[in-house]
Write a protein that binds this DNA or RNA. Sequence first.
DNA 1: GTCAAATTTTTTGTATACAAGATGGAAATT
DNA 2: AATTTCCATCTTGTATACAAAAAATTTGAC
Lengths: 230, 230
Amino acid sequence: MRAENRCVYVSGMDRKRADLIADELEGLILEGTYKDGARLDEVQLAERFEVSRTPVREALQRLSQSGLVEQIPRRGVFVRQPGPVELLEMFEVMAELEAASARLAASRISDQALSDLHVANSRCDEAVAAQDADGYYLENERFHAILYRQSGNGFLEQECLRLYRRLQPFRRMQLRARGRLPQSMAEHKAIVTALEKGDGEAAAVAIRGHVAVQGEKFHHLMASLKHAAE
Amino acid sequence: MRAENRCVYVSGMDRKRADLIADELEGLILEGTYKDGARLDEVQLAERFEVSRTPVREALQRLSQSGLVEQIPRRGVFVRQPGPVELLEMFEVMAELEAASARLAASRISDQALSDLHVANSRCDEAVAAQDADGYYLENERFHAILYRQSGNGFLEQECLRLYRRLQPFRRMQLRARGRLPQSMAEHKAIVTALEKGDGEAAAVAIRGHVAVQGEKFHHLMASLKHAAE
DNA sequence: GTCAAATTTTTTGTATACAAGATGGAAATT
DNA sequence: AATTTCCATCTTGTATACAAAAAATTTGAC
């Protein structure tokens, strides 16, 4: 047999049922179908997905690890949406991780990546002009993903992506505030400028302010949380 | 302002077998009993722990999530020790997370905590004088744990603790270098001084230098890795 | 009628049974 | 002899069966 048959990270491979269920449940929780505190019944889910309890349990354990649900031994698993305090904490950590990314990237970033950042920003601009929220989110994500990558630290990149995904639904809420999009764009440009100058500290400060929840953003987040909770 | 009172590891709660197996396996991997790349056979482990495959599988999935093993679908799970590059990356992230903790703590830390830091440092000093490595590690951990807590950000605290635990065995290697302990102590004191002055940036810089792997520390880490690999 | 103890029911955790994919080697073909 | 194909075996993934712990309900005493 050929040694080159090393299946390294083929993401699209046929995954097991448990994986699919985990993804599906994650979506349902993040999208709010299962409210905070709701119990996730194993047998119900098994029936719903037309599988046995085994893959359902596996999926639930995965969600438990990633923090979306809480598993109380011999009691069951419950949806655990972060409250206002925890959300602020998570955004604060996100800000710090991104600041670290930016600081490291300032001295490591490639010209190609800088140009990619400009492209992503231009597309963001277009999306803002076209009132295309989805397009904006997509290019915004690309912008941040490039930054993580350019930190030159693969582990940091993964951690950033993990938290970014976790906060995605709340970021969406947050940006809905009128007038935030142009300001957000200006911040993006300031970040790129700092990176072009190779000024890590400036880039870190800029992105920290970009991500952190403060001032008006705080009130908007609280308002949207209230709205989502009912 | 106390955080939500959620069930954080009630000591006496009898945990399920899968949890105990996960802890046991984690220890075995970190301590090096299972080398990098080794396959963890479900039935073997089941026999070894005298349980069925079910709790073993649950434990393995947990380890897979925390990154200690890699699970290749329909192939098995394999021990995945971080290589030199990944280790450096992890230490870099640890340094940034701790720097963030320190920066935030500078404006939020309580007098009580400052005094606790002094106590931990004194005990570290004593341990160094007595050549008591274990004592040093214990008090060092306490020192850092206090810092995380004083960041005032529970999420950040948890993330720091998670990475700290993951890096524990390598930190141990690293500190074995002759002369590192006194220097490490001096760094601790500089951190406390910065915190007392409320100078977040200084504290961040100090702890970043304290945690990062650079200069001599780099060579020691590489040497100990080589030694551990054979 | 209220409260409490006991029993029933439900649900989680574990064991075992079964199915499908992967591994390795032998047989067959070139 | 080398390579390919096929088959036996082993391992993982899923289903089902069973055990134990919690929740719910009934029963009984006051």
